[in-house]
Design a protein around this nucleic acid. Structure first.
Length: 455
RNA sequence: GUGGUUAUAGCUCAGUUGGUUAGAGCGUCGGAUUGUGGUUCCGAAGGUCGCGGGUUCGAGCCCCGUUUUCCACCCCA
């Protein structure tokens, strides 16, 4: 027999792992709701026409495509088949794909449901996304994103609130993070004043790597992309900017003095920093001019959150995108949002062992018994316990004591209620505390009060 | 897509220069113990050595291909 397996980059989650993951999801959800965001879901698959071209050339390659149903070759000519043009052929045999992120499907959702939505629309969405990447550390082909976005509002107050959400989520999860912030308008301004306006993508991609490959290599990459030597020269003081956020902003003001967009970006950043200070954000916030992020659609603020105690890449990212709905035929709607990478947060929490000890998903008491009559005797007790919200179960088969007890032990159930003839005659159970080994003959009322207190 | 790396029991891993019948720990199951788990002792089950080809008298071990794992690049949560 062939060993079963799952596709590369995907994972199974055991009950223990799910308890941990739900702790993350619930923490994030609770905070989202505090800020008035409401949940939506969208399909796992979208039409390829919705997805293609939204994430750049690289993104198109990383889309999982779904083969058409039925005889998907029937409409094709021999010429097309023998042409061996994968890209063209793909369009003919596949019209659906798995979603690559939650932002683009959300933009589609807004356009399609504009009649049911009141703006500004605040939604959150927690669902898996798929990327045909090569898996590696902290990188999966199926992973969950937790998105919060607000569309239909230009106010920088939204940026502030997203930062507050980041601050609160990571405070609750007890993860030390650094929030990096930049602004696409500043990046545009830089490209503008060095005279390479149309090379903005190459420039941002290159300087994004400053941390990783160093200044010399960045300059080399810029040159290889055709950026003029004078332009690279002009860029140097910007790359070497240092000091506090405020100091950087002041320097940028002089550097970008001739660029209207650049100055607008600086002004936005200034406003956001001031608001954060006013609201007493605890998280360390850093203006990082090298922060570009690959996504093509950001137009204003760009965010990225990194865990300070674990090397795993960014665990949250986002930004402002003006007019993302424009490609779906709805102009003039600006949005801003961020996405929490649940799977990376999970990896961080695992490495730092930051999970709370008690899990609400655990069974509180297991009924063990000596046979058919005893088992039936347990049923009304279970009903009462469950009605009070206490997780309880009975061992379903007639099995030896040892087996039933081992079951409780391996499931880490804290209490076992033993039921035999003596207990039934007295209308009681023998409650054993699995940690201390202590046991007492008690009534239903006593059992309820004990378990209610422990909980 | 590029480069490297890995694959032996359910899991984690040994396995000598290529030499008979493939090893351990953990887990599972049974027993010691028919009203008591986590400790201990005894026993059992469990393998197409990733797959395909080649070299050899002989391959878990060497060679080629392929798939897979993990890591890095590109890119990204």
């Amino acid at each position: 027999m062939q060993k079963p397996s799952i596709p590369k980059g995907t994972r199974d989650f055991t009950p223990e792992e799910m308890a941990k993951r739900n702790y993350i999801f619930n923490t994030i959800k609770d905070v989202f709701r505090l800020y008035g965001y409401q949940q939506i879901e969208t399909p796992a698959m979208e039409n390829l026409s919705t997805l293609m071209g939204k994430y750049g050339d690289e993104g198109d390659k990383l889309l999982f495509k779904i083969l058409n149903s039925g005889d998907y070759l029937s409409g094709l000519s021999d010429e097309e088949l023998l042409g061996r043009n994968s890209t063209k052929l793909t369009n003919r045999i596949s019209e659906k794909g798995l979603r690559y992120d939650l932002t683009v499907p959300f933009a589609r959702f807004v356009v399609q449901n504009r009649d049911k939505i009141t703006f500004p629309f605040r939604r959150y969405q927690i669902q898996p996304v798929w990327r045909a990447d090569r898996p590696q550390k902290g990188r999966y082909r199926e992973f969950y994103q937790c998105d919060v976005d607000v569309v239909g509002s230009d106010s920088l107050l939204n940026e502030l609130e997203l930062i507050q959400i980041v601050d609160e989520v990571y405070r609750r999860l007890k993860i030390n993070v650094c929030l990096k912030i930049n602004n696409r308008k500043v990046l545009s301004g830089i490209a503008e004043i060095i005279g390479e306006k149309d090379k903005i993508v190459d420039i941002t991609v290159a300087i994004d790597k400053l941390d990783k490959i160093g200044l010399d290599n960045v300059n080399e990459e810029l040159a290889s992309k055709g950026v003029q030597p004078e332009a690279i020269e002009k860029l140097q003081p910007i790359l070497k900017l240092s000091g506090s956020n405020n100091e950087k902003l002041q320097q940028l003001k002089t550097i970008l003095a001739t660029s209207e967009t650049g100055l607008k970006g600086v002004e936005e950043l200034e406003t956001i920093f001031n608001l954060c200070e006013k609201m007493g954000i605890q998280t360390q916030i850093e203006l990082d001019l090298t922060l570009a992020r690959g996504l093509n659609y950001y137009t204003g603020a760009i965010f990225e959150v990194k865990a300070l105690d674990v090397a795993i890449g960014s665990i949250t990212g986002g930004g402002r995108y003006d007019n993302l709905t424009g490609v779906f035929g709805m102009e003039g709607v600006s949005g801003v949002g961020i996405s929490f990478g649940a799977d990376r947060i999970y990896d961080v929490l695992n490495q730092l062992e930051l999970y709370p000890e008690t899990s609400s998903e655990q069974t509180q008491v297991l009924f063990v018994h000596f046979g058919e009559n005893e088992k039936l005797y347990c049923l009304p007790w279970l009903k009462e316990l469950r009605a009070k919200g206490i997780n309880a179960e009975v061992y379903p088969d007639n099995a030896k004591m040892k087996k039933q007890m081992s079951y409780a032990d391996s499931k880490k159930i804290p209490f076992v209620a033993i039921v035999g003839e003596t207990e039934m005659n007295e209308n009681k159970v023998m409650l054993k505390d699995m940690k201390t080994g202590e046991q007492n003959l008690i009534s239903l009322a006593e059992l309820l009060s004990i378990l209610a207190i422990v909980r």
